[in-house]
């Protein structure tokens, strides 16, 4: 554990808190991509299978929080707030993301065991799971400020893992190329968003695409 990893995990928790807070206070899930949320649940369920055979207080608690909160968000989106979700603007073709992640996971896992292949699948899928959400923002051309805070916090989480990996490599020669490559891709996908978030939202203007 180091400060970058801890900060990354805190940003992840903050992003979930912002999302649930936004939905429950506005009683609406408008602007939130159901497809991205469903992909995140798939990511957590396939990555955290090791909950069944490994236990570490910090990691196991966080894993349960991520799976539980993700399922709760999907429950809100399919139950109480379903009327506020507009499937017509949430049209990204997620089958290509799932298919691509599955192919990469089958070709290059660290070991060909079901758990390792699913873990690798989750790493690749997470790197692109935000695309339906970004696509939705792009389609509508604007986003509520609270939604932009959510996307920022979620992006900051994996971005902060990058200095964590550099730190771990320098201090203990920890090296996990799969996580690192996927994490860098994930951060790059956010970079446009980060730029607009920084130049607009943080200066008190509305998030609108140029």
């Amino acid at each position: 554990m180091n400060i970058f990893r801890l900060a990354g995990d805190l940003f992840h928790l903050i992003s979930i808190f912002i999302l649930i807070h936004k939905m429950t206070t506005s009683k609406s899930c408008s602007g939130i991509s159901f497809k991205s949320q469903a992909l995140y649940l798939l990511v957590y369920v396939t990555r955290y299978l090791d909950l069944f055979w490994t236990f570490a207080l910090y990691n196991s608690t966080m894993k349960i929080i991520f799976i539980g909160s993700s399922a709760y968000v999907l429950h809100l989106m399919t139950g109480p707030f379903k009327p506020t979700h507009d499937p017509n603007i949430d049209t990204f073709k997620v089958r290509y993301l799932i298919g691509g992640a599955a192919i990469l996971a089958l070709l290059f896992p660290y070991k060909w065991t079901p758990a390792e292949v699913l873990w690798t699948f989750s790493i690749w899928l997470e790197s692109v799971a935000i695309l339906p959400q970004l696509f939705m923002v792009q389609r509508t051309g604007a986003a509520e400020t609270i939604t932009t805070h959510y996307i920022f916090a979620l992006g900051a989480y994996r971005a902060l893992y990058i200095p964590n990996w550099i730190y771990r490599y320098l201090t203990s020669t920890f090296w996990d190329p799969l996580s690192i490559i996927a994490g860098v891709i994930q951060t790059v996908l956010y970079s446009d968003f980060f730029y607009i978030y920084y130049t607009k939202v943080l200066q008190g203007r509305k998030f609108e695409l140029p």
Partner: peptide, 10 residues
């Protein structure tokens, strides 16, 4: 330590 790679992260 490929076996342990990434498994102690989230």
């Amino acid at each position: 330590v490929v076996e342990e790679a990434g498994k102690d992260e989230l």
